[in-house]
Design a protein around this nucleic acid. Structure first.
Lengths: 185, 185
DNA sequence: CTGTAGTGGAACACAGGTGTTCCATCGCGG
DNA sequence: CCGCGATGGAACACCTGTGTTCCACTACAG
């Protein structure tokens, strides 16, 4: 078998998944904890990722792929700018603990490498079609979206009883209003 | 001199201030870094705070006091619920790097001990007077405020050229709209 | 059955942060 | 001048996480 045997891929993926989950809660958690969460020995983890930095890089790549996939599902070129932004928000919301990771980044740098969507253009489209308040700079709208995504995610995480749909509804409502500007419908 | 000599207070305060600044950027920074930032020796730091936990406790107390002071300035009992919330937001915005610290907390717990304002009541007042959309739970409005505060602070921190007043204006505008709900003025 | 791939555990040296002790220095009031 | 309060530096033991090596175990294909 030429394709590194499938089992290796499964183990590797389990490690990366566990890393995303644990790093979201504590960015400086130990490799031992990650190995335990992935249910592999620390030796095995080091066999796949020689150094901590290697694992971090793999996490960044995985995160970038998930973000890209979500953005593709959002069909950012359809509808008004605000509609596209809200669709993206809904897709991102499903990414769960990955949100914490991306949000902790200085400016989301290492996940948004290369193939990420041009959110700037979407927001400028919203400026032009009147669905997004033109006085709000694209940077700010993006910061706003991420901060509310993170707020919604941790709001949900802290309330085991809360309905995912209800929180998503709150998020959509407040973000839509924040971005729409003072003019009523 | 009975009041622990004034100099000790000054040194102690310098250490706590440095701790707040550094911990905001990196919650697991070393005591050596904090001592260096406060321009004291690591020995001196340990003389004031025997263990790391002691320094953390002092930081929490200092943070709580600053929050309380800001809340007092906001005069939360004046005007509509939304107006009070926005005033509080403006006061909090001036707290700078402390925002990162509070926001990193699970739910702002250890800073909001005892003498913090009853934001819940303010928001319910907003529900009643029509200035805050009644479908938004108080919890969610509070999460929203903190997340946008953090977003505004890091937005400002990442753009040395940006005007503090401009960012504060963006924050006020988007939070006001988010909270006001779909109904026009 | 035998070899091999994948794994886990034990042990080690190393680096960094932590908490402590001891000693030297500086400034100032008596 | 002397002593004391406040400080800084050096050195130490300790702990945790890291990266590595070596060996044993299991499953499975040939």
């Amino acid at each position: 078998m030429r394709v590194t045997s499938g089992i290796k891929n499964r183990t590797r993926q389990a490690i990366v998944d566990a890393a995303i989950t644990l790093l979201a809660g504590n960015p400086s958690c130990s490799l031992g904890d990650i190995a335990a969460a992935a249910e592999v020995g620390r030796t095995t983890l080091h066999r796949y990722f020689a150094e901590r930095a290697d694992l971090m890089a793999a996490v960044a790549v995985e995160g970038g792929e998930r973000l890209t996939r979500a953005a593709r599902l959002a069909e950012l070129d359809k509808g008004t700018g605000a509609e596209a932004l809200l669709r993206l928000c809904r897709e991102y919301f499903d990414l769960g603990s990955l949100l914490s990771l991306v949000f902790s980044e200085p400016d989301g740098a290492c996940y948004t490498e290369g193939e990420q969507p041009d959110l700037d253009a979407v927001i400028r489209r919203g400026h032009a079609d009147g669905s997004i308040d033109p006085v709000l700079p694209p940077d700010w709208v993006i910061s706003l979206m991420w901060s509310q995504l993170y707020a919604a995610w941790s709001y949900l995480a802290e309330r085991p009883g809360a309905s995912r749909h209800h929180v998503l509804d709150l998020l959509t409502r407040t973000l839509a209003n924040a971005v729409r500007g003072p003019g009523a419908i």
